Simulated assay, not measured.
Amino acid sequence: MPDSTRAECPPVDLVARLRSAGCVFAEDEARLLTTAAHTPSDLEALAQQRIDGRPLEHVLGWAEFCGLKLAVDPGVFVPRRRTEFLVHCAAEMVAPGSLVVDMCCGCGAVGAALAAVEPGIRLHAADIDPDAARCARRNLTPCDGDVHCGDLYTALPDSMLGRIDVVVANAPYVPTAAIETMPPEARIHEPRVALDGGDDGLDVHRRLAVSASEWLAPGGHLLVEAGSGQATAAKRILAAAGLTPEIRRSEEFDATVVIGVGP
C-alpha cells in the first residue's frame, strides 16, 4: 500500500465505510484518499472507486515501491512489496555500465528501483501489454530507460543479443486455476496477462529460461520471482536451459527469487 507523503485527518465515516468494504488498512487508506482529494466531491468520487473494489493504487494513480513514488495507470499491474526482494537480489549483480532488462515490466517498478540504486546502468524494459509499456515510459524516461512493447525477448533490439548482464523478471506465476481465488481487486482490475502463468504458473519462466543463454552476456544473470512452492520446479527449469541456478528466500518480504547464471 502506498505511503502518505503528508498527514491528513480522514473523516471518521470514511474510515468506517472503507472498513465495511473490506479494506484492512482502512484508516491509512482514508488518509491517502483525503490527501489526494482537492474537494469534498473529489474525495467522495475517490472513496467510491475504492469501495467498489478498484485497487487503491489505481485510484490514487501511484504506488510506493522501494521508496519511490511511481505512476500506476488503471488496468496496469500493481507492484507488490514482496517484489522489493527481487530488486535487492538484482542490485548485488549490477554495476555502472551494466546492461539491465526489466522483463514483464508492468509499470517499470523493478527497473526504476534498480536505476535508483545504481544510476549508471543501461536500462531497458519490456512488456507485452501496451498500457503497461506506456505507463513504464512515464516512470523510466526520467532515469534514461528505454521501454519496448512486445513478447519477452522479441521486444528487444537484436543488438542486445549476447550482451545483457542482468535480466530481472516479475513474470506472471499464478496457476491458471488459482486466478479465480485471487482478491477481486487483482482478478478484475489487473490484466490477466500479468497474472496467468499457465497450468503450473511457470510457463513464462520456461520461455524466459530457454532463450536466456542467447541473450545474456557470458556470466550474465536471469532473476525471476516465483512462489515458494514453485521454487524447486523453477530451479530445474533454469538448469535445463543451461543456467546455474540458485534459490533465494526472504521471510521479511515473504518472497522467493530464483537466479540463473549463464555460461
Score class of each variant (00 low, 15 high):
42 D>S: 13
50 R>T: 00
105 C>G: 00
161 L>N: 06
172 P>C: 04
50 R>V: 01
192 R>C: 10
47 A>E: 09
144 D>M: 12
99 L>P: 06
66 C>R: 11
120 G>N: 08
60 L>T: 03
233 A>F: 03
116 A>R: 14
4 S>N: 10
260 G>V: 08
79 P>E: 08
75 G>N: 07
196 D>H: 05
179 I>T: 07
61 G>K: 12
220 G>I: 01
203 D>Q: 14
74 P>Q: 06
232 T>F: 08
34 T>E: 06
254 D>R: 13
112 A>F: 09
73 D>F: 07
19 R>I: 04
2 P>G: 12
240 A>D: 15
71 A>V: 07
55 P>T: 03
50 R>L: 00
135 C>W: 04
49 Q>G: 07
35 T>P: 02
138 R>K: 15
201 G>F: 01
258 V>D: 06
230 Q>A: 10
29 E>F: 06
255 A>H: 00
5 T>E: 15
33 L>Y: 13
219 G>N: 12
211 S>P: 01
112 A>S: 13
221 H>N: 05
49 Q>N: 13
12 V>R: 15
193 V>D: 04
29 E>I: 05
209 A>H: 01
85 F>Q: 04
140 L>N: 06
99 L>K: 08
246 E>V: 14
63 A>M: 06
95 A>W: 10
47 A>V: 02
124 H>C: 11
16 A>V: 13
75 G>R: 08
238 L>I: 02
100 V>E: 04
99 L>S: 09
258 V>M: 07
33 L>I: 12
246 E>M: 15
149 C>N: 13
133 A>Q: 04
243 L>N: 00
182 M>K: 08
198 G>A: 02
196 D>A: 04
112 A>N: 11
19 R>C: 06
66 C>S: 13
122 R>Q: 15
193 V>L: 15
32 L>T: 00
31 R>K: 12
151 D>W: 03
78 V>C: 15
